[in-house]
């Protein structure tokens, strides 16, 4: 971990803290009000707000988790820093693609 990775991990953590709270609140709201999948999609599809909300959430998760996985590999496995960095980058890209795909599925009109 160097100062650049530390900065990005802390920044994404700070970003995710409120996003997680809103995400959990939305889950409670949707389930308490008995909303169906169609109701939810009716609100999210074509919504720039929900697309931005979950898009930034996915980006933050991909960066934060990739840096964390890199640290775990460096400290707990025989892999050197360079290879851990490559693995973590691929891992982060996978998270980003999977996450953005899910966001597209619920937010694209």
């Amino acid at each position: 971990m160097n100062v650049r990775l530390y900065f990005w991990q802390r920044l994404t953590a700070a970003l995710m803290a409120p996003l997680v709270l809103v995400h959990v609140a939305v889950i409670f709201y949707a389930t308490r009000n008995g909303m169906s999948a169609a109701d939810i999609l009716g609100r999210t599809r074509g919504s720039v707000v929900w697309a931005s909300f979950y898009g930034s959430f996915v980006a933050a998760v991909a960066i934060h988790a990739a840096i964390g996985v890199r640290n775990v590999l460096v400290e707990w496995s025989p892999i050197n820093e360079r290879h851990a960095g490559i693995f973590a980058t691929v891992f982060g890209c996978c998270l980003l693609v999977l996450g953005l795909r899910a966001v597209a599925a619920v937010a694209l009109p």
Partner: peptide, 9 residues
């Protein structure tokens, strides 16, 4: 101290 292996470890 800001490099890899420094204070952020």
């Amino acid at each position: 101290v800001a490099a890899s292996g420094g204070c952020h470890a």
